[in-house]
Design a protein around this nucleic acid. Structure first.
Length: 279
DNA sequence: TGCCAGGCTTCAC
DNA sequence: GTGAAGCATGGC
């Protein structure tokens, strides 16, 4: 099916670091999420072909990509005198905060600690290939993200390069497969109670908990502070920074801008060199 | 080859 | 309560 989407850039989303199973190819993108497989073909003029039915689009992917939200409202909340955030938001135009599966997000960001993004993707791909359910796709066999039960019954996850994180993932698998933590349970709690519940998971600290709050529970006030965000706070704000409204969305703009443009070398480039300007 | 990575747990103090 | 050490492994 074809659809026109504004403020939607699958390349930026794939490169934004919030998901690890969205990949770009010559003329399309493939996404694997919650046992579903999708290809997205950019057609130009904000038109996209989604390789799914209208029902699948309306009942899953539209929500997954948060396509009913107006992100210009988030950007207009930025202090107009804050040139770094204004530039970051312009550069990140088209990024969406995804509604990702709680279990997959938890495992992915447990794995992410002290790894770079290519290494994270290698680990997650190994987990899926070794323990996930095969999915038939037009481009061959892909693998769903393994369920908590699939990993819990594995007992050992050697061959996935998890290192010391393996025990964290196995502990999470036990918690999720037993039902002692669930999406419904966390969504019934307040922000701080849900975050505190996540912090009880072995291997989950503040940063990973905030990533789960943002990228799965979609609490867009969550503001994960990783090494990139801390670098921005130190360089641009003298070490002190109060997250603006909708901080999670702004955080994603900051992260993408820093990694791909502003700090892509070792220091910030001139903002006048920005490729685009967006209100 | 050596450094470093979307941090966390553990253990002194 | 706070700060430093130690951590497994792959990518660059």
């Amino acid at each position: 099916m074809n659809v026109r989407l504004v403020d939607f850039d699958p390349q930026k989303i794939a490169d934004s670091g919030q998901c690890f199973r969205m990949h770009s190819f010559d003329n399309y993108f493939k996404v694997i999420a919650s046992n579903r497989y999708l290809e997205i073909y950019p057609l130009g003029n904000e038109m996209f072909e989604f390789s799914c039915t209208q029902d699948d689009y309306e009942n899953f992917w539209q929500h997954y990509f948060d396509l009913n939200a107006d992100y210009s409202l988030y950007r207009t909340a930025i202090n107009p005198n804050d040139s770094f955030l204004i530039d970051a938001a312009a550069y990140g135009y088209g990024i969406r905060i995804l509604y990702q599966d709680l279990w997959e997000t938890t495992v992915s960001f447990i794995i992410s600690q002290r790894k770079n993004i290519p290494a994270i993707q290698t680990c997650i791909n190994a987990l899926c290939c070794n323990y996930g359910t095969p999915l038939q796709t037009p481009h061959g066999i892909e693998y769903a993200f393994p369920t908590p039960e699939q990993l819990h019954s594995a007992h050992s996850l050697q061959g996935c390069a998890l290192g010391y994180r393996e025990k964290y993932v196995l502990a999470a698998a036990q918690q999720f497969s037993s039902g002692s933590i669930s999406f419904e349970q966390l969504k019934s709690l307040s922000f701080s109670d849900a975050r505190n519940r996540l912090l009880t998971l072995y291997g989950v600290g503040k940063k990973v908990a905030d990533c789960i709050m943002l990228f799965s529970l979609h609490d867009i006030e969550a503001f994960p502070i990783d090494v990139w965000i801390q670098r921005i706070i130190d360089r641009e704000y003298g070490g002190s920074f109060t997250p603006p409204p909708y901080g999670g969305v702004i955080q994603q703009y900051m992260f993408y801008y820093a990694r791909n443009f502003a700090y892509a070398g070792s220091k910030r480039l001139a903002s006048t060199n920005l490729p685009i300007s967006v209100p």
